[in-house]
Simulated assay, not measured.
Amino acid sequence: MSHRRLTVKGSLSLSNPTVRAWLFQIVAVVAIASIVIYLIHNTITNLNNRGITSGFAFLDRSAGFGIVQHLIDYQEGDTYGRVFVVGLLNTLLVSALCIVFASIIGFFLGLARLSENWLLRKLSTLYIEVFRNIPPLLQIFFWYFAVLRNLPGPRQAVDAFDLVYLSNRGLYIPAPQLGEGLLAFTGAVLLAIVISIGLYRYNQTHQIKTGQLRRTWPTALGLLIFLPLLAHWTFGAAIHWDIPQLRGFNFLGGMALIPELAALTLALSVYTSAFIAEIIRAGIQAVPYGQHEAARSLGLPNPVTLRQVIIPQALRVIIPPLTSQYLNIVKNSSLAAAIGYPDMVSLFAGTVLNQTGQAIETIAITMSVYLIISLSISLLMNIYNRRMALIER
């Protein structure tokens, strides 16, 4: 009986590693909770002392300022809530553009790093080593102040067929406007795609049964051209074009790509593509060389080998670090505030914060948006990564 009491007593002493581990965790949780409670209490007290009201009611108030670029209708009298939507869409726009361009440039640079052509290999190496070692903010300044702002003014703009104009005010291109034949045109395109998919599957089945190869793309291309044209002639134009025209000191009509967006897209695409190129190169080199030799022994040409054998296996190595680069693009897009591009940080954590004084709310909303965007990208890339992962049986 006494031996059991000694055992229980010894198990509850500080010499027991389990007891110490639990004790340290409890102390850590209490300390963190105390710090959080203190910060919240201190914040509320300071807000009350300064007469600052907290909450999100300010989102319904009129903003009273204009925004140079907005993907949705926006007027100066619109609310701060609509300003939030405008900034969010602008952030998503520049992030999406940079992800697409950086991926394309990085892919071809990664292949060029492995090319047997000496000049191509050295040029790609020079590109990577230069641009990935220059801070992205400096690259943004270079494209904006040294390149785009030195373009000619609107009256001396560089034009192409009186449709596209490039000046220091931005790139002006024709803007599509929906027409009366849009529904018929869309239906014709969908019908052409459905017929092409069915024909492709039929030709595959025919090849398996007879060994005869039938090409699908000429018929599919003809359908994609003929059916929409037929819908256009029958039901009218699906899209009308608003052509930009010079009026006074600027252009009216069309769609404008402002210099801030162009500079940000160029800088982040060039900067991130250098890192993606190294990821592509490392992923391809991670594929065992025996896969190359096996493909050559089957008589596969190099483009087919790369597309059907090497790249699918390299993706398993490429996707995880590529996800990190996509997240970096989203986070680096906040540097847009340095050149006045109206993104989330510039509009909401800048102008709106200064006008309303709601620092906690605006910063919290901005941080939450970036967190949600990053988590969404991570989720999508992880789903794709699981689909490409090797499954051992």
Rank of each mutant, 00 (worst) to 15 (best):
T91R: 06
L89K: 01
G290Y: 11
R393Q: 08
F251Q: 00
A282Y: 01
S333T: 13
A188Y: 06
D343R: 01
W143Y: 10
Q313K: 08
A146M: 13
Y341N: 03
D73S: 15
A338G: 04
A102K: 05
M1R: 01
V369W: 02
A28Q: 14
C98M: 03
P301N: 09
S62R: 12
D60R: 03
L182D: 00
R20S: 08
I40R: 11
V189W: 00
H3P: 04
F141I: 00
Y80R: 04
I197R: 04
E76D: 14
F161K: 01
N46C: 07
G110W: 05
G77V: 05
I279M: 08
T45F: 10
F235T: 03
L327G: 13
S15A: 14
T91C: 06
N117W: 12
V29L: 15
T366H: 07
L126T: 05
Y172Q: 04
V270R: 00
D162K: 13
A364R: 05
E260G: 06
S324R: 09
V189G: 02
I372H: 13
N203P: 06
L230E: 00
E260R: 05
A237Q: 10
I360Y: 14
I197E: 07
H292T: 11
R386Y: 15
I67P: 05
I311G: 03
L230T: 10
T18R: 14
S273T: 00
I105L: 14
K331R: 12
L59Y: 04
L138F: 11
G51F: 12
M367S: 08
N328T: 12
Y74R: 07
F131P: 07
T186L: 13
Y271K: 03
I280K: 05
V330Q: 01
S124F: 03
R50D: 09
T186M: 11
Q204N: 11
S13L: 10
S297T: 04
I363M: 13
R201P: 02
G283H: 02
E260T: 06
N203V: 08
L183N: 11
N48D: 12
G77D: 10
N48E: 12
Q177M: 02
G10S: 15
R82D: 07
W217S: 15
S167C: 06
I26F: 14
F226V: 12
G198C: 09
L93G: 02
L178K: 01
E76G: 13
A294D: 06
M367N: 04
S196G: 02
S374C: 15
I383Q: 15
V130G: 04
L246T: 00
H3Q: 12
Q177H: 05
F161Y: 06
T91Q: 03
R316I: 12
I105Q: 04
T18G: 14
N382T: 11
M367W: 08
P301A: 09
S34G: 12
I383W: 15
V29R: 10
H3D: 12
L119Y: 08
T43W: 13
E116V: 08
A389P: 08
G254S: 01
M388Q: 15
R214W: 09
M255C: 10
G248Q: 06
V86G: 02
I280Y: 09
A286R: 02
S15L: 15
